[in-house]
Amino acid sequence: MVKKIVFGNFKGGVGKTTNSVMFSYELAKQGIKVLLCDLDPQANSTQLLNRTYTKQHKSTLDFQKTMMVAVQDGDLRPAIVEMMENLFLLPSHVDFINYPDFLELKFPLGTENYKEARIAYFQQLLKEVEDDYDLIIIDCPPTISKFTDSAIYSSDYIIIVLQTQQRSLDGAGAFWEYAQTFYDNYPSTDFDIAGILPVLMKNDSAIDNQIISDAIELFGTDNVFDHIVKHSDRLKRYDREGISDKDFTDKWDYHDTKLHTLYTEIADELLSKIGGLS
C-alpha cells in the first residue's frame, strides 16, 4: 500500500523543498516508484526538478497541463510528468495560487462540513492515482493555509525539517503543535509524525549543536533523525543547477558521491521510521 509523507515547517528557507526533492530522488534511484506533489504555488520543487531534468537531458520537462487545471478538471493524472525512471512529479505553477478560491467556490458556505470538504478534496483526487506509486511525497508552503491543510489531510506521515536556528526550531514546534490540533479537529485523518530532520546551517557550530540538543529535549530522542544533513555547498549548487547524477554526467566527484551516499542513508532511516513499504 502506498504511503504519503509531508515535509513541513512553519519557517521558510529551512531546506524543506530541497530535502523533499532529494529524498524523492534517492528513493527513486533505489527502485521505489515515487510521486512528488508540489503543493506550493511558488513551485520550488518543480523548478528544482525541471533544472535537474534539463541538466540531465538537455531539454526541459514538457508540462501538458498545470496542476490547477487538473484540479479543476477533477483528474490529476494528465498533469503528472515523468522525471526519470521511478520518479514522477505533480508540478505546481503560479496559477495554483487560485486553489483556495477554487475550493471556496466548489464548497461554499452552507455546504455540509464545508471546512473539511475543502481540505479533503486534494486527498480525493490523489486517491485516484496513488495506487500507481509506492511512495508519495508532498511539499507544501511554510504557512497555515489550504495548501498545507490539504497536504496534512492527505498524509500518512509528517517529517518536520529543522534548520539549526532558533526561528526554525520555533517553526518546527509550531508545526508539531498544529499537526496535533489538526489531528484532533479532523478525526477522519490518520497520520503520524515520522520525525524531525536536522539540517545544519554550519558544520561544527556550537549554536547548531545546541539547537539539535534543544530539539531532542523538546521532541524526544526517538523523534529526531539520527542522520543530520550537514551544511553543503554542493547541495546549494544542486538547488541552482539541478541534481548531479553520475549516470548522466562525467562531471562527478567526491563531493557528489558523499552527498548522495548521505541521502541514501537518510532515506533508509526514513523507511525504517515508517515501517518500510509493502
Rank of each mutant, 00 (worst) to 15 (best):
N86V: 02
D132H: 07
V94G: 02
Y133A: 00
K115W: 12
V129R: 03
P100G: 08
K146G: 02
Y153T: 07
D101V: 14
V161C: 09
Q163I: 10
I160K: 02
D101R: 14
N86P: 03
D101E: 15
Q163Y: 06
D139E: 07
N113C: 01
L109Y: 12
L103G: 03
S155Q: 07
E130N: 08
L90P: 05
E128C: 12
E82R: 13
N86M: 02
L126D: 06
P141Q: 13
L89D: 08
S92H: 07
D149W: 00
Q163M: 14
G110H: 02
Y133P: 01
D95P: 00
D139Y: 05
M84E: 15
Q163T: 12
V161S: 08
N98L: 15
D131H: 13
I137K: 00
A117M: 13
L135F: 05
D132Y: 08
Y121R: 07
S155T: 14
C140L: 08
E85P: 00
S150I: 05
C140S: 15
E82A: 09
F122G: 04
N113T: 04
D156S: 08
M68H: 12
Q123P: 03
L87Q: 12
L76H: 10
N113F: 12
D75E: 05
E130A: 11
E85W: 00
V161G: 04
F96N: 04
L87K: 11
G74L: 04
V161F: 04
T143G: 00
E128V: 13
D131S: 14
P141N: 10
Q163L: 13
I136R: 05
I144P: 01
V71H: 06
F107W: 14
L76G: 11
L76N: 11
V161E: 02
L135M: 08
S145W: 03
Y153P: 06
T164D: 03
P78A: 10
L109F: 13
S155G: 07
D132S: 10
L89S: 09
M83G: 08
S155C: 15
L162W: 07
L135C: 04
P78Y: 10
I158S: 04
D149G: 00
E82Y: 00
D156E: 10
P142F: 04
I97V: 15
Y153E: 05
L126K: 12
A117P: 01
A70E: 01
L125H: 12
I137Q: 01
P100T: 11
E85N: 07
I80H: 07
L105I: 10
I160G: 00
I97H: 06
V71K: 04
E128Q: 15
E82P: 00
T143D: 09
P142Q: 03
L162S: 08
I137A: 02
S92Y: 04
R77I: 05
I137M: 13
R118N: 02
A79Y: 06
I119L: 13
